[in-house]
Design a protein around this nucleic acid. Structure first.
Lengths: 146, 146
DNA sequence: GACATATAGTTAGTTATGCAACTAATTTCA
DNA sequence: TGAAATTAGTTGCATAACTAACTATATGTC
């Protein structure tokens, strides 16, 4: 038995990611209470577009760790809500560039404030070093499996 | 700004839980390759029943961190596959006791081996102390938000 | 130039999640 | 005792995930 193997009874918390689920739920709730009608999955797409606008769907797949059908439907829903718009690329007609609308740009600061607030609530009593360790382990696990 | 606040650019990995998603995906794949037709959500319910059989649906909610409709439907599907059976409690007729079938009992060792194997792959290069820290932070975050 | 292969995105089908509204059984307490 | 509140579970609706199969465009190679 390897040195770092989880005991069976502890496996679940890792597989299920209960902590990140709890964060997501709380953030969703905070959005709703602020009258924002977006899901946190939609928000996570907008988040990457705020960093760099007009990405291809494939690029959004890479950055959000989602597969193509998931992104297709998230973009469908964001388009219905008039938060993004698909535009065919001039140079490669296979590619859709996904660009923010003005309405989406207005959401940025408000939702990022809510996200930061939520993280502050979540991380009460957690040290900087511990956060650093969690991030490193996450990255390592992700790299190990992909 | 609080001392342990995430920088914006780092928020996503926590909220999305990409690492636990990657673990779940790999475990699901390993189940499929072994010819096991269960989802990892279903497995996570069975997991708690292997530890203690014939729990109420409410108790399964608590132990798996899911809400009641999610458990209702997971049990529906597990019942379709003849892996569990609902039995009305003798003492409180509101309660369904969810009990394992023989078929489910046979799945236990095989799937837990696969889960341990998956965790070993995932945790290559991660130390025991780091795992301990991650678990503590998860628990802390969960407690902070619930 | 033409055929094979790779890449970008969509669609269909199944399972799962969250919320809100619901039924039925039990408990509380006036 | 009997009405109100609580608890256990279900159902309906919308969103999202994964897989597999699909279309369309682009690239690579003979």
């Amino acid at each position: 038995m390897s040195n770092n193997q989880f005991k069976r009874g502890e496996l679940y918390s890792v597989i299920n990611g209960m902590a990140s689920t709890a964060v997501a739920r709380r953030l969703q709730k905070n959005f709703r209470q602020a009258g924002l009608e977006i899901t946190i999955e939609q928000w996570s797409v907008l988040y990457h577009l705020w960093k760099e606008d007009c990405l291809s769907q494939q690029e959004l797949c890479n950055r959000t760790f989602r597969d193509k059908p998931s992104i297709t439907r998230l973009i469908d829903n964001l388009e219905k809500q008039k938060l993004v718009k698909r535009t065919a690329s001039q140079t490669d007609r296979r590619i859709n560039l996904v660009c923010l609308t003005d309405a989406a740009k207005e959401l940025q600061s408000q939702t990022i404030d809510l996200a930061n607030q939520t993280m502050n609530e979540a991380l009460v009593g957690v040290t900087k070093d511990e956060i650093e360790t969690v991030k490193q382990v996450f990255q390592r696990v992700y790299d190990n499996l992909t």
